[in-house]
Amino acid sequence: MTLTRRTLLAALAATPLTARAQGFAGLGTEAEGFALPSRDTRLAFPADHGPHPAFRIEWWYLTATLEGPDGTPYGVQWTLFRSALAPEAQGREAKGWGSPQVWMAHAALTTPEAHHSTERRARGGTGQAGVTATPFSAWIDDWQVTSTAATGDALDALRLTASAPDFAYDLALTATGPLVLHGAEGYSVKSPGGQASHYYSQPFYDLTGTVTLPDRAIPVTGKAWLDREWSSQPLAENQDGWDWISLSFSSGARLMGFALRSTDGTAFTSATWIEPDGTATAYPDGALTLTPLTEATPPTRWRVELPDRGVNVEIEALNPRAFMEVSFPYWEGPVSITGSHDGRGYLEMTGYD
């Protein structure tokens, strides 16, 4: 339990793990030659839906909470990571095996009884994996997230597909709200020292489609959330893991939050409160509290508090065994929400022994 989606790319792009001692999976090391996020940058769409090869790490990350006809809950994850062995200028990506880009993808399907996960990898420049902003498409082999939007933003409507020997899904996503920028206009601070990323989400998807288990195909409906993030040095050298949540409340409001844990026992927190109409309020370090409610490692029950919004809830994993059995294992799965607010969401945990 030492790596996850936000570190896989650095692991692929760096020298052997034993050579990287600074920060969680080397993400606290100096990003020599790579671009760094800037407070002066203003995100622009559709361009920023596409890749940013001057930065070291990047991901397109989808989670969904689903329900079958009999009320059984499910969870889906689809993530495409880009990592750079060396920086490239925007719009001047090398072709073929000369490309310094490395791609990895994860797909998962969670049920109350089981958690299915798999991964794929590719080298950039070969056509096996990549992302285009216009028209929007993200793919690795036959796994795809493709825009089906006729008008508006390219992410307003998507088709999501993935398959593995023991599961598959084919889902249609329709956004009912706007894109949301985290932090200061998409500049998301990650540490007291100022490490940061560019970070935005589309948290307002309604979803329909089919998930396939080894014994049957199941029609489902639900909600989905897309995260987009890129950086080159997002962590401080003493940050060794994090706990991340995306919560969708029955009121229509949403909450994104994370706690980045340091080796001295402290944690740096950040949160975004999202109104049903998409109005977003960013909260600085200390406003959000995440408290484990079990001694299990990693803890799959948490108290989440954001007093400024009256949030005092308990989240609990649908399946406590939702470990991603991939090259770099981590925990990620759907959660239920009870307390001051109710609903469903997703939890990710990294850096636990």
Rank of each mutant, 00 (worst) to 15 (best):
G71E: 05
L207M: 13
Y346A: 03
P219I: 02
R120L: 15
D285Y: 09
W331S: 03
A322Y: 01
T148W: 01
L66Q: 12
R216L: 08
I245S: 03
P292K: 08
S250M: 04
I337T: 02
I57E: 13
L318A: 04
T289Y: 03
W60E: 06
R92F: 08
L158Q: 15
R261A: 09
S201N: 15
S191N: 08
A47G: 00
T294F: 00
A13N: 05
R82D: 07
S251R: 10
M349P: 01
A44S: 14
P53Q: 07
P234Y: 09
G75T: 08
R20N: 15
F258K: 06
L318W: 01
R6P: 04
D48N: 11
R6K: 03
S99F: 04
G186T: 13
A84R: 01
P329A: 11
D170F: 09
A129M: 06
A236T: 03
L85P: 04
D70T: 13
S197F: 08
G310W: 02
Q128S: 09
A54K: 10
D277H: 01
M349I: 14
L155F: 15
A253E: 14
W59E: 08
W273I: 01
A287L: 04
S270R: 06
P53S: 10
Y283K: 08
T338L: 00
E348S: 02
E314P: 00
I218P: 03
T7N: 13
E325L: 13
L260I: 15
G252Y: 04
E305Y: 02
A149G: 12
R56G: 08
S163C: 10
E88N: 05
P135L: 07
T4I: 00
K95M: 12
L43C: 11
I140C: 04
G351S: 13
G75P: 05
H115K: 07
S327F: 02
D40A: 15
T72Q: 00
P284L: 05
W242S: 03
D156R: 11
I218Q: 03
I57P: 00
E314Y: 02
H115V: 06
S248C: 01
A114G: 01
S201H: 11
G127S: 06
G241P: 14
N312S: 14
A86D: 10
A184E: 14
L36C: 07
L226A: 12
F167S: 14
L158H: 14
F249H: 07
D277V: 06
P178H: 08
S251L: 05
H106L: 13
A296L: 04
G186Q: 10
H341S: 06
A108Y: 05
D142W: 06
V304E: 03
G252L: 07
T63H: 09
H52I: 02
